[in-house]
């Protein structure tokens, strides 16, 4: 399922876009590919809410090198995902949105690995696409295939309905309208039920916002900071019955060796 790509430039663009959704399509830092995300004409046509000055941009700027590399998505797919996830979890005055939190990187890595290939999924036929929801996922697609087909068909729908404009060319309200059309099945796609795609994207976006930063999302532990989750830390014996306690310890990623437990050595 992994497609060989060398799209570092796109990622730079993608990273730039996290400065704010409204600004994302307006930045216009085109690379030689001329990829539409860089065209920068859209902001004028569809004025979006001003991008708040947010820690998101700092977080993105501080992202380690290589976190922008994509293993799975091609350029338009990445542009679509970036423009979609930042509406599902938008930036605000205090906390970054999904794009600046690295959710594109997170989903890309997930789709390039076992999850994308249908790890732990029973995929034998026959398939019944119109099965009742109680019976769960019944499509023939791996998650990777679901994303590829879903994005392709949603883009076609958006272009047809918007005089050729792509999803990422739309303003915030228009993008929200497309997303809610997918969510409620108001939009009908040729190959799959739109809500299945939407729910997968929403679930993966929430994962990418809250999973350990080692997976590429939740950059600077923004999701954890937002709710006050301390992460991989593992010891509240003395605090659990301290009612209404104001816990202020910095969150910790499992990638941080300091989170390792000392009793490894005293219990051979």
């Amino acid at each position: 399922m992994t497609r060989p790509v060398s799209r570092r430039h796109l990622l730079k663009t993608g990273a730039a876009s996290v400065a704010g959704v409204g600004a994302a399509v307006a930045i216009g830092t085109c690379d030689e590919s001329g990829f539409p995300i860089c065209r920068g004409s859209q902001a004028a046509a569809q004025p979006a809410a001003p991008a708040p000055a947010s820690p998101a941009s700092n977080a993105a700027a501080a992202a380690p090198s290589g976190t922008g590399m994509l293993f799975f998505f091609n350029d338009p797919e990445a542009a679509f995902v970036t423009a979609a996830v930042d509406r599902l979890i938008p930036p605000d005055a205090t906390f970054a949105g999904a794009a600046a939190a690295g959710v594109l990187t997170y989903i890309d890595r997930q789709l390039a690995s076992g999850f994308g290939a249908g790890d732990r999924m029973y995929l034998d036929g026959p398939w019944l696409a119109d099965a009742p929801p109680e019976q769960g996922y019944q499509l023939r697609f791996t998650p990777a295939q679901l994303y590829q087909i879903g994005i392709e068909e949603i883009r076609a729908h958006v272009r047809a309905a918007n005089a050729g404009r792509e999803f990422w060319d739309l303003g915030e309200a228009e993008r929200d309208d497309v997303l809610s059309g997918l969510e409620t099945a108001r939009i009908v796609l040729p190959s799959l039920p739109a809500p299945v795609f939407f729910e997968t994207l929403l679930a993966n976006t929430i994962e990418g916002f809250f999973a350990d930063p080692a997976y590429g999302g939740n950059r600077d532990m923004v999701g954890w900071r937002m709710v006050g989750f301390p992460g991989a830390y593992a010891q509240y014996l003395e605090l659990v019955d301290a009612y209404d306690y104001a816990y202020r310890r910095e969150p910790i990623s499992m990638a941080n060796e300091d989170a390792r437990h000392a009793h490894l050595t005293d219990h051979p």
């Binding site: 999850f115 790890d119 732990r120 994962e207 809250f210 999973a211 350990d212 997976y215 992460g231 991989a232 593992a234 910790i252 990623s253 499992m254 990638a255 941080n256 060796e257 989170a259 390792r260 437990h261 490894l264």
Partner: peptide, 15 residues
């Protein structure tokens, strides 16, 4: 063992 056991994505979400 922690910290890798404390991986919500791997153990709670991906089972």
């Amino acid at each position: 063992q922690s910290p890798t056991m404390h991986d919500e994505l791997k153990y709670s979400v991906r089972h």
